[in-house]
Design a protein around this nucleic acid. Sequence first.
RNA 1: CGGGGAGUGGCGUAGUCUGGUAACGCGCUUGGUUUGGGACCAAGAGACCGGUGGUUCGAAUCCACUCUCCCCGACCA
Length: 573
Amino acid sequence: MRWSKIFTPTLRETPAMAEAVSHKLLLRAGYIRQLTAGVYSYLPLAQRVLLKITAIIREEMNNIGGQEHLLPALNPAEIWQESGRWQVMGDNMFRLKDRKGAELCLAMTHEEIFTSIARDELRSYKQLPQIWYHIQTKFRDEARPKSGMLRVREFIMKDAYSFDLDLEGLDKAFEAHREAYCLIYKRCELEFSIVEASSGAMGGSKSSEFMVYSDAGEDWIASCADCKYAANTEKATSKIPSITDEAGLESPEKFPTPGVRTIEDLTTFPGGAAANRQIKTLVYMLDDKPALVLMRGDHQLNETKLTDSTQAINARPAHPAEIQNLLGALPGSLGAVGVKDIFIIADKALEGRTNMVTGANHNDHHLRGVSIARDINITKWADLRSVESGEGCPNCSGTLRVDKAIEVGHIFKLGTRYSESMKATVLNAEGKEVPIIMGCYGIGVGRILASAVELYNDADGISWPVSIAPFELVITPTNINDALQKETSTKLYEEFMAIGVDVILDDRDERPGVKFKDSDLIGIPYRITLGKKLKEGKVEFFTRRNKEVKDVSLENIVEVLREAIAKANIVKP
RNA sequence: CGGGGAGUGGCGUAGUCUGGUAACGCGCUUGGUUUGGGACCAAGAGACCGGUGGUUCGAAUCCACUCUCCCCGACCA
């Protein structure tokens, strides 16, 4: 490719809308343009990167026996109704009607479609196992797209589905994907970690996420330095010191607390209590049914844990009016003592506690001397608490830390969640009809691209890993009007192309500074510069990542470059 | 959905409070001089100021409504 021909609209200034580093750089370097919130056009540079990422994914998926399909993005409502997810997906699904009024949606994921193919076509256990995948555009009507490519409404995803006769087969498929994913991320040079995660609306038992630690991420990961424990905070548990209470009063005692609205207020109020001696009472609507959620005063509720433990599809905090109606008081004075006929779920950290303080369901009044078991009619106990940095590792004596991360992949053991609801069965060796055991395995292709930029950038721009860079090498004659430079650079360019190096020749009639700035911004890993020393048969070899420059003779330059990129495990798209 | 911010040539902004017919930098075009880290000089092109309605002799500026985007939160296979 000649630079004079490629469309690379680089910008000197960053568009004001961008916040995340990857978003700014991808815009500035001419990779992407935004069409509307959460929807981007991938310009030629980005497309080159995407093709390289998907080539790596394809190779590793094919290596574990994956067979590539390409499934529709436009789906009829019926198939989603069959699995029950037409409702479950709620507002996150883009829905539309065709001219006949039939309901359709834009697929968010493809369990239903792949399962329907399996149901229609797989008859016998002899046809198992299967691993099917595709790389497709998916749609999600995110409430708030953000951070450039990291949270979008239209995105490219590789998703794979495994079909097995039994759980052993599923375990094997799951493990095969785990290993393939590790190879994929390694080859993209992403530093990642595998964490336990919630399965959420996907259903199924076990799920693992592949996370890239980055402040641009949206997930919080709890991890232990002393052992291998790592989990998304929506799933993570921790050890915390137990608290010994005094027996306290015979029965709860109501006392006035004018102006007290928060846990914090009550800790300083005369006759109040430390946060860890308070019961925080939250009111949630779980699928439009009210529930009281009880937490220790100093603990934070994790809503994913709440929905996971109650099987609720939608959970939202109740509105003040709903709360007033339900409990007769407003937030700040709420409690569960004496409450009947309402679902009450309590965090395990409250188990066995006595002599606590909580709201009295009477504005500006609280109760002291509350003993959970004696005074509150708990419907269900569950782990609802978000773990915090500094708490104890659940697996060893280490300490947990909590960091932000970008989710770049997620693998699930689905089991029979879809095969049962959609009746995808095969006959086993005994001639008995059994549901197919499924797994599903996703990779966010655009997120790999964005994560790589988040990980590899500096003041001058992007510094791509060689394996996914839009070009591996740029040849830069500092003055294209110099006959020797022009001739030599063209010769080198053709030579590198002939041996399969992905090279771009910067044949523009621009000042050297412009060329250097552009190639640094775009992030091409290696540059060969032809300048004054060319007359002595020397060119400059520049490494983008560490800015190292060395003079190399013309005879050796091909070999030097070849060695440099040999280390990257490159697949040609 | 709650809170905050912003829409002015391609990009970044000023102008809005205090109404008088749009300015600056970058980029772009042409000519010339330059050529190792985003050159310089000169001459140009390019904006009905997000939209609709209103107030006014006159609106980018004031008022009402509305659309869109960004950020925080909520939400998020």
